[in-house]
C-alpha cells in the first residue's frame, strides 16, 4: 500500500481545521441551531462532515490503487 495521496491528506486536514484549530471562531452560544448552542451544534455537524471528508479521501485513494492493479 502506497502512502496516502496529497489530495487525500488535504481532505484529512479539513476536519482538523473545522473541529480543532478554529475553536475561537465557533465557541459561542449564538446563534442557536434548533435550540442547541452554536458550539455544540457545530461539533455535531462536523461528525457528519468528517465522515464525508474521509469518504472522499477513500474514493480518491481506492480509485488510485484500483487503477494501478489494472495497468
Amino acid at each position: 500500500m502506497r502512502p496516502p495521496s496529497v489530495r487525500a491528506l488535504l481532505l484529512g486536514l479539513v476536519p482538523f481545521a473545522g473541529i480543532c484549530f478554529s475553536v475561537a471562531f465557533w465557541d459561542r452560544l449564538k446563534p442557536t441551531v434548533f435550540g442547541i448552542p452554536f458550539n455544540l451544534a457545530w461539533l455535531i455537524a462536523w461528525m457528519v462532515l468528517c465522515t464525508l471528508c474521509l469518504w472522499a479521501a477513500y474514493r480518491i485513494d481506492s480509485a488510485r490503487e484500483n487503477g494501478e492493479h489494472k495497468t
Binding site: P4, A8, L9, G12, P15, F16, I19, C20, D27, N39, L40, L43, I44, W46, M47, C50, C53, L54, A57, Y58
Partner: peptide, 20 residues
C-alpha cells in the same frame, strides 16, 4: 461545562488519524 466538548471532537479526529 464547555471544556467537556473536547470529548465530542477527538473521536472524529481520532478516526481521521486511524484512516491514514
Amino acid at each position: 461545562g464547555g471544556p467537556s466538548l473536547y470529548i465530542l471532537a477527538y473521536i472524529s479526529l481520532g478516526n481521521v488519524v486511524s484512516f491514514f
